[in-house]
Amino acid sequence: MDILRIEGGVPLAGELRIAGAKNAALPILAATVMVAGRSVVHNVPDLEDVRVMLEILKSLGANVSMSAGTVTVDASTLNSTQVPAHLMQKMRSPMCCDWLFSLCA
């Protein structure tokens, strides 16, 4: 682990961009199926599990787009509650899949 040692009596100042977290993004994306309209989620990491979740949402009939860490989900077009097994198997976050499945059931 790196150590950052700050010496002197000078206050710190500046800005730091915090990267999005997969474990936060996945349940938020799953919750978009409960909104009868458009949801916009910012700071979403471009990771395999996130891409699989977006494919799951598309398979349910949602209109989904992702650009520069911002995901837009329009759930007003949902036409299915069946999550395809091949996509569920790709998801490495089973808790999120169980939660999404319970929302769709």
Rank of each mutant, 00 (worst) to 15 (best):
P11G: 03
D46H: 08
D2N: 14
R17I: 04
P84Y: 09
G9M: 06
C104N: 07
V10K: 10
A30W: 10
A25Y: 03
T77I: 00
S67R: 15
M66Y: 00
T32N: 10
G69N: 05
A19R: 14
V44H: 04
A36N: 14
E15L: 05
N43F: 07
L26M: 09
Q89K: 14
L87F: 04
T81D: 07
G14C: 07
G20I: 05
A30K: 10
M1W: 13
I18S: 04
P11E: 08
R5C: 05
L54M: 14
G9T: 09
D49R: 01
L78R: 05
R38P: 00
M95R: 01
L47D: 00
N63S: 12
L60I: 12
R92C: 00
F101K: 12
M34V: 08
M91H: 02
I56V: 15
V64D: 02
L100M: 11
H86G: 00
D98K: 14
R5N: 15
P27S: 10
C104T: 15
I28Q: 05
V50T: 08
V44P: 00
L87I: 09
V41W: 05
V83Q: 02
V64H: 11
I56F: 02
I6S: 06
L4I: 15
C96P: 00
C96D: 01
L87W: 04
E7Y: 14
A68T: 10
H86A: 13
I56Y: 07
D49K: 02
V35P: 02
N79R: 15
R17A: 10
K22I: 02
C97P: 00
L57M: 10
P45Y: 01
S65K: 10
T32K: 05
A85V: 14
N79K: 12
